[in-house]
Nucleic acid binder design. Sequence first.
DNA 1: CCGAACGAAGACAACGTTGTCAAAAAGGGA
DNA 2: TCCCTTTTTGACAACGTTGTCTTCGTTCGG
Lengths: 356, 356
Amino acid sequence: MAKPTTPQKAAAVRQRGVTMSDVARHAGVSRTAVSFVLSNRENASISEETRIRINDAVQALGYRPNAGARALASQRSDWYGLVTEIVTAPFAVDIIKGAQDQAWLDHRFLLIAPSDQADAVGPNQGLEDAATEKLLEQRVEGLLYAATYHRGVHVPESAHEVPTVLINCFDADGKLPSIVPDERAGGRVAVERLLRAGHSRIGVINLDPHIPAAVGRLKGAREALAGAGLELDPELVVSGHATADGGYEAACQILDRYPKDQRPTALFCLNDRMAMGAYDAIKERGLTIPGDIAVIGFDNQELIAAYLRPKLTTVALPFEKMGALGVQTLAALTAGQPITADQQLVDCPLLERSSV
Amino acid sequence: MAKPTTPQKAAAVRQRGVTMSDVARHAGVSRTAVSFVLSNRENASISEETRIRINDAVQALGYRPNAGARALASQRSDWYGLVTEIVTAPFAVDIIKGAQDQAWLDHRFLLIAPSDQADAVGPNQGLEDAATEKLLEQRVEGLLYAATYHRGVHVPESAHEVPTVLINCFDADGKLPSIVPDERAGGRVAVERLLRAGHSRIGVINLDPHIPAAVGRLKGAREALAGAGLELDPELVVSGHATADGGYEAACQILDRYPKDQRPTALFCLNDRMAMGAYDAIKERGLTIPGDIAVIGFDNQELIAAYLRPKLTTVALPFEKMGALGVQTLAALTAGQPITADQQLVDCPLLERSSV
DNA sequence: CCGAACGAAGACAACGTTGTCAAAAAGGGA
DNA sequence: TCCCTTTTTGACAACGTTGTCTTCGTTCGG
């Protein structure tokens, strides 16, 4: 990676576009030689001496290759497009971070485009079109679609022109590869943690039972219980709105429904916001966490989980990893690997804090 | 904005790069004519009929202009570069959102690059270099630097080659224009709100007193008090670590220091995380919010402020607006407006919720 | 001293546009 | 019919690269 070590000098010389010819002239060599050195091709035969002369000239002039021209001539841009509603509804920003970092490592550039909120209206239940179109105009070599929450989406037609990978969502038409969190394993891990702490009567504060997250997490919870020879008592599962208030209400229901000795000793909240509400319900009743009631969350929303008191033990959604994996997968596809509709599941690690 | 309305048909025809010539051939006109229509130049004289023929051909072939080639030929890319640590440390994501949306409106593309964490080490106290270099290789027309928290930064040398605007930070060398929150006005608004609610004895939970945010907000608080003929009692200002724990401890100090009747009746927390801790301290003492103690925060961290119980009244940092304004300012600069080192202050609006 | 082998030069055609210009075709009015 | 517009064309040179090929010096080994 050419990086001018003497920016002061360079900045002085540089005015409007130093080109390869300028470098060649300054180094007293041919353009061809410069091109060879800069893209250090293997079949080239360049003496060490001229190589150095050329690099010096690059530094001296502050030459900076024109990425656009290079893309045009070489027919490859080294760009990936990332279409996401995350820009609009920041929650899973870490997907962007993970993707960005991985792309950076691979010497590729990520063009991030906001998926329209057109989402909300119309039949276009999927991610948006204009953004995709714009990205294709930039001749991106592949596309990534990232959603804020795990669900099925419809991807615009034109996305099929280049390799495409979905992150934190999956293709409702079942044609494209995707990277999604392993909700089920996450749910299992959470409940296993509670079992390990000696809890056997566990209340569950559920999300909207139809979304993939709820389905998977609950399934995992059941599996964990089954592993300990237990069953999930349907009475102990209460669905609520996915907010702190929703969690508060659900927790109140669970806590108030039973006499003290039959009350669950632990709550599995299917997201951290609801856990936040549950905290209030518990504290309000003069109970302590985790002494009287242990609480485990899901999502690891830093601002909540790490700042609640006591800090919330929770299962993290592997946003960053999914982002990175998305880029890696895309890289494999653009390198020629055949496109399949695989769903890659990514582990949701348990984060131990102090609420269990 | 040309947008294929019949993507199915287009996708079928399209294989590897439909070019302008293809469109011309299909429409039975010259390339020149196509170019004229597509960039609808004013000095062109094209009959309505051929214009339609050409547009039809564009749709039929699914032609998509090659942005790189266009940039190369026209010497303008319509790209801005945004260098930011926000990707790495998401907190002020809304800056990206604001900038992105504004750029989209202006038909410009935002290339987002992560500023290295090199920040942490070395003498490079500013934002990073490699990212800037990469962006300039893409021939961005202007640069934006965005920081996660309000402070002075050093921008790399090469940033001076194109118009540059700083967002949520300012140039430590005093040469570049910047967009920053009006912390002082924000502090004033917060305290005025408390005064209006009848509080005159107000405790302040302060941040690290050296950072611009603390300086500005405190100054504003003093102004507000002065406006009511009051003074800020230095004893009531306690600095703490900018976390929930820090806020908890600071609040404990303030609350326990005085007998009940001299105790402040309101707390101005200089950020929401500390307010979150203060909530705990208050509740722990059996006091109610806002009944016994009113609390006002700063930052409007959605996940905290909107989910605390009672919901936190706070002053919002205008991230989104700063992002948008940054792009607008940059647009003005690239359009030829002279570069000055102005700091544009953006208002911090008060968000009324239920804690006052 | 000859022929390899190597290093480098130079030419040229892409890539897909934008621009500019002169010139040709089509149409209209007198 | 002739002239004058209004459209439309074709040609060509940019833009800054990549990539391929031929040619031309060197230098070195034998």
